[in-house]
């Protein structure tokens, strides 16, 4: 969906035709879900977060200023929402299963499948701050420009650029695919 189409729909929604909000959601929901999925490391929480983000966005549509792209504004809400979720979450409840990964206990393979696609990636992502995870996903995976990411994170684009290189290096440093007794599936790539 291009920006003109989005703006047209937003105008109609703001004039009271709220059904068009469905079209907005259909255009952005998979991207927003994937972002939440990687930041939160949990499928069900990511689904809930996606819902909450769209509800928050709807409630605040009147405040949306058109100077920034709608997608960037939506990601900004998502970024803040994920920060809130992580603050509220008792992170420690995930730790026992991480420790079991190290011991090679196989039943956690089943557990992780319902939660996140790869325990190795989960462990590596856990070593990053929310800001770093955001940068890794938005730049490294979604290939957004640093200007767009700067809008989302309220940061300076030049500093993000430097930070991304360090974050990617940090991620690679921690990431190590579990090949025996760990992951149920072979990892798609070994990072070097």
């Amino acid at each position: 969906m291009d920006s003109k189409e989005t703006e047209g729909l937003l105008d109609m929604i703001l004039q009271g035709d709220e059904d068009h909000y469905e079209e907005i959601m259909k255009a952005y929901q998979v991207k927003i879900f994937h972002y939440c999925y990687h930041i939160l490391g949990h499928q069900v929480e990511a689904e809930d977060a996606t819902q909450e983000v769209f509800i928050k966005a709807y409630r605040n549509l009147k405040k949306y200023k058109r100077e920034i792209p709608f997608a960037a504004w939506l990601y900004k809400i998502t970024y803040n929402h994920c920060m809130d979720v992580l603050r509220k979450r008792k992170w420690s409840r995930f730790l026992p299963f991480l420790q079991e990964v190290e011991r090679g206990v196989s039943h956690i393979d089943i557990h992780i499948e319902d939660v996140y696609f790869s325990e190795s990636v989960y462990v590596a992502m856990s070593a990053l701050s929310v800001e770093e995870r955001t940068l890794l996903i938005l730049r490294g995976v979604e290939e957004k420009t640093y200007e767009e990411i700067a809008q989302i994170m309220n940061k300076n684009a030049a500093s993000l650029r430097k930070k991304f290189e360090r974050t990617a290096a940090k991620f690679r440093n921690v990431y190590s695919p579990l090949e025996k007794g760990g992951a149920k599936h072979a990892e798609s790539a070994r990072l070097t």
């Binding site: 909000y21 998979v30 999925y37 709807y58 499948e113 890794l136 490294g140 798609s188």
Partner: peptide, 22 residues
Amino acid sequence: DIKDLFSDPRIPQQIDVTKSVM
């Protein structure tokens, strides 16, 4: 390498929250 890693087919590709949000 990072992009490939996060393009894993095990990552859920379908989600529809439109009904519940509306």
